[in-house]
């Protein structure tokens, strides 16, 4: 049986209190896409890391900003696009930190990005500061 492409999108206020709703939204759809529990957990965590980075680093604190989450899936892959209009960052400046490097430098956002890359099959950054920044997270079936 072939699964037709399904698209869902939701917008959230950029607040850490919304992370639990974001995780529920993503894990529910990953389950519908047919992933096992281990992979659902990985997708859920990767999206949490992407959104946490937006809340913590993309926007000035205390401001009223949004995070857009677009999900597309079919029987081959599950793609999550996390978008914001914040200040962005240069992903090439954030290498793969080891724990000791992180402890010494406390690289902003580096740990979350490292985790996203470990958890997903593909992670792409498309950064246009203050216009549209997008992290695309892909997990293949």
């Amino acid at each position: 049986m072939t699964l037709n492409k399904i698209k869902k999108k939701l917008q959230f206020d950029s607040k850490t209190s919304n992370l639990v709703k974001i995780r529920d939204f993503v894990s529910n759809l990953a389950g519908k896409a047919g992933f096992d529990e281990d992979n659902i957990n990985k997708i859920e965590l990767a999206v949490d890391e992407a959104c946490s980075n937006v809340v913590k680093h993309a926007y000035p604190s205390g401001s009223d900003y949004k995070i857009d989450i677009n999900i597309e899936f079919d029987d081959k892959k599950f793609v999550v696009r996390v978008q914001d209009q914040g200040k962005g960052f240069n992903p090439t400046e954030l290498g793969t930190p080891d724990i000791k490097t992180y402890l010494e430098k406390r690289e902003v956002g580096g740990l979350g990005i490292h985790m996203m890359k470990e958890l997903m099959d593909q992670v792409e950054f498309n950064i246009h500061p203050n216009k549209k920044n997008q992290v695309t997270l892909t997990k293949f079936k």
């Binding site: 949490d48 890391e49 946490s52 724990i99 992180y102 402890l103 985790m115």
Partner: peptide
């Protein structure tokens, strides 16, 4: 039931 890098960062922030 769940931990993200923000939680791991707390352990790392204090250990040394």
């Amino acid at each position: 039931t769940y931990i993200s890098s923000a939680g791991l960062g707390v352990f790392m922030g204090f250990i040394e």
